[in-house]
């Protein structure tokens, strides 16, 4: 079903105006945007050097989830930057974890993705504040507000140009059963999207899982929807589709003593509850230890 809550066709006026004003006043500070998803954009001399929003993966998620940079490398660069006061960007480049040009391009697209995610949602209040500390990686020189606004408008127009209504970033997507034949390789990143589109994840969630931009993810999902490979579901939670797979929790069935109440562990299930340290801890901890023990034995050498 694809009956989404259509977002506005253009960038919300308060956001557009705030970007124009911050650029004109050569702001060095933070533009905070409340709304859904909302976010924060860091300006330096009127240019945008970083963007943060729950609606789109940041540079750390993009680098780590896409495996461009491994976690140990990132942690080492972070530790060194914290110890020496050097820019994290320089640490990443200096350790040859990522090229300078690639990092700049990724930062630019990540910022553009954050602006898109905020603009494609609901914008309430935009407020400029003093600079905030703690930014890990920034784009130097920053992106022009004018370019970001033009790029965001273009992206919104592209998504709205699909014949089928394009879902919003919070709609859940699900692969059409049987649409992808076993052994068929879709390419273009579609295989991963089809595999992960389980009816729970939104385009935003998929972007985080795969370490891709949310716009790029939505664009590909839009194409897949047009090709009949996926469906978008904007229904609120608790709708019938949600309930189809519901089965009583085994723990409830096995251990409940009072219907409708909390499950209670029967006496024979209770842990020994060792002396002092374990007295307040749940008896289920013992079962966990047993389970971990099994995992260790199966994962042993051999």
């Amino acid at each position: 079903m694809s009956t989404p809550n259509q977002p506005v066709a253009t960038i919300p006026t308060p956001l557009r105006q705030a970007f124009i004003d911050c650029a004109a006043s050569r702001l060095s500070g933070v533009l905070r945007v409340t709304g859904q998803p909302g976010g924060a954009f860091h300006f330096s001399e009127g240019k945008i050097v970083a963007g943060e929003t729950p609606g789109a993966p940041g540079i750390e998620a993009i680098l780590l989830r896409s495996k461009r940079v491994d976690e140990s490398g990132w942690d080492a660069a972070f530790a060194a930057a914290a110890a020496t006061g050097r820019e994290m960007r320089n640490e990443l480049i200096g350790r040859e974890l990522v090229g300078a040009g690639e990092l700049e391009a990724l930062l630019r697209t990540t910022i553009a993705d954050a602006v898109f995610a905020v603009a494609y949602g609901v914008v309430e209040i935009c407020r400029a504040e003093a600079p905030a500390a703690g930014l890990l990686v920034t784009l130097e020189p920053g992106a022009e507000a004018e370019w970001l606004l033009a790029e965001t408008s273009r992206r919104i127009r592209v998504l709205r140009s699909f014949t089928d209504p394009v879902f919003n970033a919070r709609a859940r997507v699900i692969a059409v059963s049987g649409a992808v034949r076993p052994g068929l390789v879709l390419g273009e990143g579609r295989d991963e999207l089809a595999a992960l589109a389980d009816g729970r994840r939104t385009p935003r969630d998929l972007a985080f899982v795969l370490g891709r931009g949310v716009y790029a993810t939505m664009l590909e999902l839009g194409r897949m929807q047009a090709d009949g490979l996926i469906l978008a579901d904007s229904r609120p939670p608790g709708s019938p589709a949600d309930d189809e797979e519901e089965t009583p929790s085994p723990a409830v069935a096995d251990d409940a003593e009072t219907p409708g109440g909390l499950p209670r562990r029967r006496r024979e299930h209770a842990g020994q509850g060792g002396r002092s340290g374990g007295r307040d801890l749940p008896a289920a901890f013992r079962l966990l230890r047993l389970r971990y023990g099994e995992g260790t034995s199966t994962g042993g050498t051999g």
Binding site: S249, L262, R265, A283, A284
Partner: peptide, 20 residues
């Protein structure tokens, strides 16, 4: 989960560690 961006799963458990 729907209201807060980024929640991927939820669970409710009893204090003695059983799933509700």
């Amino acid at each position: 989960r729907e209201r807060v961006a980024g929640i991927t799963g939820t669970a409710l458990a009893s204090r003695d560690g059983l799933i509700v």
